[in-house]
């Protein structure tokens, strides 16, 4: 298989913030890679560097055999970009915008087919300004595909969608993958990554913390067990509870949840800690972890507290 994208040791800082901190990965032709992570993880910066929209501070990047920083027009003729925040001349209709932007590509797709693909046939001649948010996002998608690209970048393609609109966009994107296109998408929805991607790279704080197929990620966590319980009081020093644990503990209010590869030892520690203090652990559960649990433990809970940057499926 041919490598479409090769990234080694990529770094990018904004002032003191290391937005991308030594990222390496490959994408082979025809593969769909999802870069999954909370807001601020560095996903968009990474993708913008691959697109040639942003310069990098360090590392090697090759996209379709080209350095995207100096790809120029021939490079952009081969890629399609659906940015998170890119406007379009909204007084034009979808058809007019596709005609206008399509003219710059060497092998544009058929406009009628594309309008059908993104399910805007009824709205093709309406001004873009009159379309709903989800419909406009599909106009974005169509504009990203008009050049018949070998490689497509989708930056958070369904953020802000209602569940039905998301499902529809997923179907459209799935159709693309069946055409053998290489796709790199960023998302902070776990279910989206699982549904669309062949491979998922989990990103947090500028680093890739896990990389594999959804099944591999699932297997890696199936060996883990989730232990959860409520603490009736919060006046005890929790250091003695959390420090000796083999698994990663985290608490939210009275609720404590953690994943552990050694459930017997950790459970014994937790129960003896509680018994020594005469504490009853309400709602104590021991169950096998799911993908969402491992995702949350990988990216760290504090990352996404300010908004709903978490899979909620």
């Amino acid at each position: 298989m041919t490598t479409a994208i090769r990234v080694r040791g990529l770094t990018k800082s904004y002032g003191d913030l290391r937005a991308v901190d030594g990222v390496s990965f490959d994408v082979v032709e025809g593969e769909v890679l999802a870069i999954l992570g909370p807001n601020g993880a560095g996903k968009t910066t990474t993708v913008e560097i691959l697109e040639g929209h942003r310069t990098r501070d360090g590392g090697d990047v090759s996209v379709l055999g080209t350095d995207p920083g100096r790809g120029g027009r021939p490079f952009r003729d081969r890629i399609g970009i659906v940015l998170q925040a890119a406007g379009v001349d909204r007084e034009l209709s979808t058809r007019e915008a596709l005609e206008l932007y399509g003219a710059a590509y060497s092998t544009p797709r058929s406009i009628d087919e594309l309008i059908e693909l993104v399910e805007l046939t009824d709205k093709a001649d309406d001004r873009i300004v009159s379309l709903s948010g989800g419909q406009r996002r599909r106009v974005d998608l169509a504009l990203g595909l008009i050049g018949n690209p070998e490689l497509i970048f989708l930056d958070e393609p369904t953020t802000g969608f209602d569940p039905r609109a998301r499902r529809r966009s997923w179907d459209v994107i799935s159709n693309l993958t069946s055409l053998g296109r290489t796709i790199v998408l960023t998302t902070h929805y776990l279910d989206e990554a699982e549904y669309l991607a062949d491979r998922v790279a989990v990103m947090a704080k500028g680093r890739i913390v896990a990389d594999g197929t959804p099944a591999e990620l699932r297997r890696s966590v199936q060996s883990d067990t989730k232990i959860a319980f409520d603490l009736p009081r919060l006046d005890e020093p929790l250091v003695e509870l959390f420090d000796p644990l083999i698994g990663q503990g985290r608490g939210r209010g009275h609720r404590v949840e953690f994943l552990t590869p050694a459930p017997t030892a950790d459970l014994a520690h937790v129960t003896s800690w509680a018994m020594q203090r005469g504490i009853e652990l309400d709602g104590l559960t021991v169950e096998s972890a799911d993908l969402e649990d491992v995702y949350l433990s990988l990216v760290g809970e504090d990352e996404d507290s300010e908004d709903s940057g978490r899979a909620d499926g």
């Binding site: 929209h53 003729d77 940015l83 890119a86 001349d89």
Partner: peptide, 16 residues
């Protein structure tokens, strides 16, 4: 057109 990201979009296409 700059604030709306139209200029940004253009820079990601082969249109000079």
């Amino acid at each position: 057109r700059r604030d709306e990201g139209i200029l940004r979009r253009v820079r990601g296409t082969p249109l000079p």
